[in-house]
Amino acid sequence: MINKTVLNAEDAVADIQDGATLMMGGFGLSGIPENCIAALLKRKIQNLTIVSNNAGVDDFGIGLFLKERMVKKMISSYVGENEEFERQLLNGELEVELIPQGTLAERIRAGGAGIPAFFTPAGVGTEVAEGKEIREFDGKHFLLERALYADFALVKAWKGDTAGNLIFKGTARNFNPLMATAGKITIAEVEELVPAGSLDPNAIHTPGIYVQRIFKGDSYEKRIEQRTVSV
């Protein structure tokens, strides 16, 4: 069994350079790679292109990168919870590519699966379609969308083993398994790291083949954006 473990977040992200393209898992603040984010913040690298469904909030997640001016370009589907983001965008300090969420997911999936492009109905007739090839299939129009790739994919799982096999929990799965397939180097941080052979093979969501580095995250804040409770 190939051992993918690295000591900690600092070691895992040590070779990420200025100008890198990073995919970062998570939906809102759920399932984000908190420990990798903290380690990258210490290194203050710059000109990052970040592929992530959202951009965090002002003082947590990717919002912290924005505050430190580490990001050149965001590729996202929804960025509504972040004032600093909106400020940088409206001032022209940040490039942003907004993509329909399903198209974003499929572009990442395609990138990891060796599919260079695909047709989707999402965005036909809107500004998302500008400059893209449109084809008709069975009487309906579709856009040609290209696959997405990244230098590094940073993903967060619930459990993982030393061979890089991953299991996610709840809705913290979201973009993580897709991004794991589309990074040249995929770094997985997990809440619980176990020896290879201790996870049920039936239960594995992401096979270790996609993961190059794995470590146990020191701590997880798991901040909640909208705490809604019933009485």
Partner: peptide, 13 residues
């Protein structure tokens, strides 16, 4: 500018 989230995929399908 908040983004379309999943709305474009939903209304297309």
């Amino acid at each position: 500018v908040k983004g379309m989230g999943g709305a474009m995929d939903l209304v297309a399908s």
